[in-house]
């Protein structure tokens, strides 16, 4: 029995010398380890940020109530709200495209589409909020 073990060990070393760098077990272990490591980033998506959603819907109400859509001061109003909330808040209508947020890194984004009155007709606006990471 001992002799057989010695023989198989010697055979293994021999095979390794002939080009088998890893055993099947080591390969599977490495494979599972790489699966586990690649799933680690998924934990970021479990971050719960309900406050950001509330802030974004508040921003939509505030923009509508301060008349920013009809006064043509949409960018300034969005910038003011961004400064107040610490989020990047952008508002876009059919006729106005948003100014990019300076220094905003793309974190989790929330988008809302709301009905608005732009002074002459009913249309829609899109409010996009992102919190810098």
């Amino acid at each position: 029995m001992k002799g057989k073990g010695k023989d198989s060990g010697a055979a293994c070393i021999g095979r390794a010398k002939r080009g088998f760098v890893m055993s099947a077990e080591a390969m599977f272990a490495l494979l599972f380890l790489s699966f586990a490591a690649s799933s680690l980033f998924l934990f970021n998506f479990q971050r719960y940020d309900a406050e950001a959603f509330y802030l974004c819907s508040d921003a939509a109400i505030v923009l509508a109530r301060t008349g920013a859509f009809s006064h043509g001061s949409l960018d300034d109003a969005a910038e003011e709200l961004s400064a107040l909330s610490g989020m990047c808040i952008k508002a876009q209508t059919d006729s106005l495209s948003p100014r990019p947020c300076p220094g905003a890194q793309a974190g989790e984004k929330i988008s809302l589409t709301i009905p608005i009155w732009d002074g002459s007709q009913a249309t829609t606006a899109r409010i996009t909020c992102s919190r810098p990471r």
């Binding site: 406050e51 509330y54 802030l55 508040d58 921003a59 109400i61 505030v62 109530r65 301060t66 109003a77 003011e80 709200l81 107040l84 909330s85 610490g86």
Partner: peptide, 14 residues
């Protein structure tokens, strides 16, 4: 603490 946005006397407020 949480922050919310609101309107105060016609102006945006936190």
């Amino acid at each position: 603490c949480v922050e919310r946005l609101a309107v105060f006397e016609g102006q945006a407020a936190r």
